[in-house]
Design a protein around this nucleic acid. Structure first.
Lengths: 122, 122
DNA sequence: CTGTATCCTCATGGATACTG
DNA sequence: CAGTATCCATGAGGATACAG
């Protein structure tokens, strides 16, 4: 898998005793750490579909995510630079979420996942 | 996201009251259910790199996965049809794991993940 | 409306020992 | 060698209440 142009052992192997190459430090591992978890990709998916989207609408679309979980996940996605939170100083408050360019760039990945699922889903 | 050719609400939305379209029943959700989790993609990654591979070697390569966890994950991957377990009736036992065609077909996804990580990793 | 703050449950995964 | 069995720790995620 030519993910770096280097030998695999240079970028991902745990074989070296020191320094230990942690999975997270590899491109593959980094991506994994960003999009793994139960909800990350689902949230990103809906952002692709419906951005800009407000907090409540997002929760309604996902349907089964809890209040706190959505909140935490959104904050993590924001910290990872995948989404942009835009707050309107109103009463009542209004917040819109959009994908950043970095977030948008995951679109091909989601596409691949959809196509793969389409093909292999029982 | 044209993952089915149908309207999004027909395949993924939770908006309909009944029947509720569960995420798992969508192509996207199916893929998610298959590859999510902490180790699935890591194991598949190493299979791409080093198949056919034996149980012990696999654990050694991953480096930080526990005995039980690897065992459980391998069984799930086998049940999902992504890998093929081949047992040689020897003493001591020898077992080799290979990717099935279905498993191999995830290669583009892994490729995408590597490339994305390569580009956006800090 | 858009969140935080608590508290709690439970699945995931780890350590260790044992088996064919 | 390639697992299973058992027990345990951790943290992700959920329910509910409260706040700005």
């Amino acid at each position: 898998m030519p993910h770096t142009g280097e030998k695999v052992s240079d970028t991902m192997s745990m074989r070296e005793e020191k320094p230990i190459n942690r999975l997270q430090d590899t491109p593959f591992g980094y991506t994994l750490s960003i999009i793994s978890g139960k909800w990350k990709m689902v949230i990103l998916y809906w952002l692709v579909e419906a951005q800009p989207i407000r907090y409540n609408e997002l929760q309604r679309l996902i349907g089964t995510i809890s209040h706190k979980t959505l909140s935490v996940q959104l904050k993590e996605l924001e910290n990872d630079g995948l989404i942009i939170r835009r707050e309107y100083p109103q009463i009542p408050p209004k917040v819109e979420y959009n994908l950043s360019e970095k977030g948008q760039s995951l679109y091909p990945l989601m596409e691949s996942m959809c196509q793969w699922g389409e093909k292999y889903k029982t």
